[in-house]
Measured scan of single mutants.
Amino acid sequence: KLETFPLDVLVNTAAEDLPRGVDPSRKENHLSDEDFKAVFGMTRSAFANLPLWKQQNLKKEKGLF
């Protein structure tokens, strides 16, 4: 399991300012399950079932792209 970080560490943070080991294209993977659901309004599995373009739009909207 990946290390999780608080939302404010990941949202609207440039790649070079992210904690070590965080993939800038997969910031959402480093949210706790609770934060993930609070941000996206759905579970990880529901998010994973969305088309890629919709996932990317949601990530942009939430500052996690």
Rank of each mutant, 00 (worst) to 15 (best):
K1H: 13
L58Y: 05
P24S: 07
D17Y: 08
R44F: 05
F65G: 15
G41H: 11
D35F: 01
F40E: 00
L58N: 01
T4K: 09
A48L: 10
L31A: 01
M42A: 00
K62R: 09
L58E: 02
L31D: 01
T13W: 10
P19K: 02
D17K: 09
V9F: 15
F36D: 00
L10A: 02
L31K: 00
H30D: 03
T4C: 09
K60P: 00
F65D: 15
S45Q: 13
F65Y: 14
H30W: 12
Q56P: 00
N12V: 07
V11H: 05
K27G: 03
N49R: 13
L64G: 02
E61W: 08
P51G: 04
D17T: 08
L31N: 01
E16S: 10
N57H: 13
L7I: 13
P6T: 07
D23S: 05
V9N: 05
K59G: 01
L18F: 07
A48I: 09
N12C: 14
K54F: 11
V39K: 01
K1V: 13
D17Q: 10
A48P: 00
L58K: 05
R44E: 01
A14H: 11
A46H: 10
S32I: 04
P6D: 07
K1Y: 12
D23R: 03
F65C: 15
V9Q: 10
Q55L: 01
T43E: 11
F40I: 02
F5S: 03
W53L: 10
H30N: 07
Q56C: 14
L10T: 02
A38V: 11
V22D: 03
V11L: 13
A14D: 10
D35S: 05
V9S: 08
F40R: 00
L7N: 03
Q56D: 13
E16M: 07
P6W: 04
N49C: 15
D23W: 04
M42F: 05
D35G: 04
F5M: 05
L64R: 02
L58W: 04
T13D: 06
W53P: 07
E16I: 12
D33P: 07
W53C: 13
R44T: 02
K27T: 09
D8P: 06
K60G: 05
E3R: 07
Q55H: 00
E16Q: 11
G21L: 06
G41P: 00
S32R: 07
F5R: 03
F40D: 00
G63D: 06
A46Q: 13
V9I: 12
V39M: 07
G41R: 08
R26C: 13
P24N: 05
S25Y: 14
E61H: 08
L64Q: 02
E34C: 07
L18H: 04
A48S: 11
G21M: 06
R44I: 03
G41K: 09
P51Y: 01
A14W: 06
E34W: 08
F5L: 07
K54T: 12
P6F: 03
A38N: 13
S32A: 07
R20A: 15
V22S: 03
L52K: 11
F65W: 14
P6M: 03
A48Y: 15
D35W: 02
T43L: 09
M42S: 01
L64H: 03
R44H: 05
K60E: 11
N12S: 09
L58Q: 02
L50S: 01
R44Y: 05
K37L: 15
P6K: 03
F65I: 11
P6Q: 05
F5W: 12
S32L: 04
L7R: 05
K60C: 14
L7M: 10
D23K: 04
S45F: 14
Q56L: 13
E3I: 13
F47C: 00
F47K: 00
K59Y: 06
D17E: 11
V9H: 06
D8A: 14
E61A: 12
D17F: 09
S45K: 12
E34I: 10
F36A: 00
D33S: 06
G21T: 09
A38Q: 13
K62F: 08
D23G: 02
K1D: 13
A48E: 11
L2P: 14
L58R: 02
E61C: 11
L58S: 02
F40W: 01
V11Y: 06
A15V: 14
D8E: 14
F40V: 01
E34R: 08
Q55D: 00
A15E: 14
M42G: 00
E3H: 10
A48W: 10
P24V: 08
V9G: 04
D33F: 04
N57Y: 13
N29Q: 15
E61L: 11
N49V: 12
K1G: 13
E3T: 11
D8V: 10
L18D: 04
N12D: 09
T4F: 15
G63F: 06
R20V: 15
N57V: 14
F36G: 00
V9Y: 15
R20L: 15
L58F: 06
F40K: 00
F47M: 01
Q55A: 05
R26K: 11
V11F: 06
G21I: 07
P19I: 03
D35P: 00
F40P: 00
K62L: 10
D35A: 07
D35I: 05
N57T: 14
L2A: 13
E34S: 11
F40T: 00
F47W: 07
K54Y: 12
W53H: 09
D35R: 01
H30E: 03
D33Y: 05
L64M: 07
L64T: 01
K37A: 13
T4Q: 09
D8Y: 09
L52G: 09
G63Q: 05
E3A: 12
D23Y: 04
W53S: 09
